[in-house]
Amino acid sequence: MPVIDTHNSVNALEVRGIGKRFGAFWAVQDINLTVRPGERRAILGPNGAGKTSLFNVLTGDTNASAGSIKMFGADMTRMPINKRIRHGLRRTYQHANLFNGLTVRDTLFLAVAGIRGGWGQLLPLKASDHRLAEAERLAEVAGIQTFFSHEVSSLSHGQRRQLEIAIALAENPKVLLLDEPAAGLSPAERPKLSELLMSLPKDVTVVLIEHDMEIALQTSESVSVLFNGKLLAEGAPTEIMENEDVHRVYIGGAHVH
C-alpha cells in the first residue's frame, strides 16, 4: 500500500468506518480513508457511488451516520461546519449554489469574512478593506479577476467553476475537497483547470472527485475508487488502471454525467 505514509504519524485526513444512511439506504458504507499531508488524491466512481455523500459528511454539510473523521489528528466527526472551515477544511460543490445576486467581489469577500470574521459589520464596506484585498488575490489565482465586479448570475458555467475554486481557496486551506471541478467544462477549458489544480501550493492536501480520467490521473498521485457506497480499490494510478474490478464497474462502462 504506497498510499499510507508510515513516516508521518499525523495524517491530513483519517476517516474510519464512515457511513451515511438515507432511510434504510446506505449511500456511503464503512469507508476508511487515509490521506497524507500534501497528498493529491483522486476519488473515482460511477454515478451514485456515494462520492458527494462522502464529501458532505467530511465537511459537515450532513452528519455521519457511523464512523469517525480526524483532520490533522483533531476529531471532527461532530464538529459544526464553521469550525471545520477554521481548521482549514474547504470544499467546492458539484452543483452550483452560488449567490446569483452578488458580484464575484462580494462573494469572495464573504468567503474571506466567514473565516477572518467581521461579516456582521453594519457600515458600508471600504475599498481599502483587508478582506477585499484577499478577495482580489483569490480571483486572480482562480483566473477570474476580469469578472471581479460582475454579478455571479452573468458568469458562464466555466467561470462559476473557477469562482467555486476561488471560494475554497480563501484563507489558506489545509485540506481541499473538490467535487467534479471539471464537470461541464469545454475541452478548451479543461487544461486551464488542470493547470490551476497543479499550481496549488504543494502543502495543500487535495481530494478530487473527477470523472475526467485524464485530469484525475494527471493531477493525482493516488486513487480511491468507490462503488455502491463502498471502497472498491485504492492505489497508485497505474495500479488502478489495471485493476479488473475497476474496469468492470467503471472505466470500461459507459459513464453519464
Binding site: T59, D61, I81, N82, I85, R86, R91, Y93, N97, L98, F99, N100, G101, L102, T107, L110, A111, A113, G114, I115, W119, I167
Partner: peptide, 14 residues
Amino acid sequence: AVRDAPGRVMALGI
C-alpha cells in the same frame, strides 16, 4: 447571500 443560497452561507462559516 442568505436570500440567494442559505445553505451556502452556512458552508462559508456565516
